[in-house]
Amino acid sequence: MTVHSQGAATSAPQDAPPKSAGRPKAPLAGAGRTTGTPRRGRASLPSGWLPYALIAPAVVSIAGLLLYPLVKNILLSFQQVNKIELIQRKAPFIGLDNYTQLLGESRFWTVVVRSFAFTAANVVLIMVLGSLIGILLNRLGTKMRLVLSLALVMAWAMPIVASVTVFQWLFDEQFGVVNWLMRTLGFAGYEQHNWFESGFSTLVIITVLVVWGSVPFVALNMYAGLTTVGAELYEAAKMDGANGWQTFWKVVFPNLKPFFLVTTFLEVIWVFKAFTQVYAMRSGGPDRASETLPVFAYIEGQAQQHYGLAAAISVLTILMLVVVMSFYFRLILKQEEEQ
């Protein structure tokens, strides 16, 4: 017999199960949950072979597009493949003869020195001008910043061949704007002046072209990096009496040091392997005096049909670039350890 809270008595069998044994009540929120036990229905992280299977297509694609041509190019550098070998369909292995021939030629070392000087001049100008324009973007108002940003993007997005054509017209002997401007300013000797009469002057014009097309990337990235520097740092530097240069060197540069390292690293690679600007401007002329290593390899391979020698030039170019970049890798790794 049980007694309700109202006092009414009812009889029930003695062997009747208690009410708690009937329909189970809905558990309270958080009840029965143990720490560290995954919730039912949630997929666990992949383990074992599954991650490797997911990245396998990308690895195979990269190996097919990059690794296989690289291996074939290295093998070709140890072979003698000229016009006669192409006709006879033979490619005898000659060991290190291609490398010995290149390393013993003064013309090869002239091109190497020219390539490094061309890269250094371009990278310095690109980083300096790009940083200054990035600082200018950070100081301008909204409307002028938008106008300058659009101009930078249009210069950056212009196809290389189209920009080379424009620069060829600007420095043309008869109808060039530069010759007309120099005559208008009163300078003598610019009546049908040939700006491409020497390899040095040709490389100077190519440098202007490369810098003009590469500065927007550095400037826009510099402006994006400056937006991460807090205004309180500028105010603290101003209160300490720092001028503009001291503020940049003591406040901006330490905060944007990773940006400068990575951007310089990318610019060195892009300028060192620049091919279209140099070849489309004057095909490495005059008299092959404006050749850089990529153009030198192309002319030796396609024009002279010395394919084994051209492959050796490309392999040596890669090795030189890796050696140069190893210093930047060390700086980047050191920067990451300091953070």
Results as ranks from 00 to 15, higher is better:
279 Y>A: 01
332 I>Y: 11
263 T>C: 15
211 V>E: 13
179 N>P: 12
301 G>Y: 07
21 A>W: 14
290 S>C: 00
83 K>Q: 13
196 F>I: 00
220 L>S: 08
259 F>G: 00
59 V>Q: 04
97 D>A: 10
67 L>F: 15
207 T>R: 09
315 V>C: 02
316 L>W: 04
253 F>D: 07
319 L>M: 08
332 I>F: 10
293 L>A: 05
226 L>F: 06
181 L>Y: 06
282 R>D: 05
119 T>G: 11
329 F>T: 08
235 E>G: 04
141 G>Y: 07
119 T>I: 08
338 E>W: 05
206 I>Y: 00
179 N>D: 10
84 I>L: 13
311 A>C: 01
22 G>C: 10
213 G>A: 03
58 A>I: 02
254 P>T: 01
321 L>P: 08
152 L>G: 08
203 L>S: 12
168 Q>D: 14
321 L>D: 11
95 G>D: 07
283 S>A: 10
99 Y>Q: 00
139 R>T: 03
284 G>D: 08
194 N>I: 00
320 M>F: 15
197 E>A: 14
22 G>L: 15
274 A>P: 00
98 N>P: 01
91 A>M: 08
170 L>A: 02
182 M>D: 00
23 R>L: 14
121 A>Q: 08
124 V>M: 12
113 V>W: 07
12 A>I: 02
275 F>N: 03
76 L>W: 02
130 G>T: 05
318 I>Q: 12
71 V>A: 14
271 V>S: 10
336 E>R: 11
250 K>E: 08
17 P>Y: 13
333 L>Q: 14
327 F>R: 06
323 V>T: 09
211 V>H: 12
38 P>K: 12
48 G>W: 07
198 S>A: 04
258 P>R: 15
108 F>K: 07
129 L>H: 01
101 Q>T: 04
143 K>P: 02
41 G>V: 09
64 G>V: 04
175 F>W: 12
104 G>Q: 10
322 V>P: 02
7 G>I: 08
319 L>Q: 04
33 R>S: 08
116 F>W: 11
265 F>Q: 03
338 E>I: 06
291 E>S: 06
169 W>R: 09
328 Y>K: 00
234 Y>N: 08
70 L>F: 09
165 T>H: 13
330 R>S: 14
222 M>V: 03
229 V>L: 11
6 Q>I: 08
239 M>I: 10
182 M>P: 00
252 V>C: 12
234 Y>C: 08
64 G>N: 03
290 S>Q: 00
269 I>L: 14
55 I>P: 05
92 P>F: 01
289 A>E: 15
238 K>G: 12
246 Q>F: 00
28 L>W: 04
98 N>A: 03
128 V>R: 01
115 S>I: 02
211 V>P: 13
187 F>S: 02
164 V>Y: 12
242 A>T: 03
215 V>S: 06
283 S>V: 03
229 V>M: 13
62 I>Y: 11
20 S>T: 08
20 S>D: 13
123 V>H: 07
323 V>C: 13
44 S>A: 09
137 L>K: 04
324 V>D: 03
326 S>F: 13
245 W>T: 06
148 L>Y: 10
266 L>T: 02
173 E>K: 14
82 N>G: 15
219 A>K: 01
23 R>C: 05
192 Q>Y: 10
244 G>N: 09
47 S>Y: 14
264 T>P: 13
85 E>R: 00
134 G>W: 10
36 G>F: 07
70 L>K: 05
163 S>H: 03
219 A>G: 02
39 R>D: 15
197 E>Q: 09
138 N>M: 03
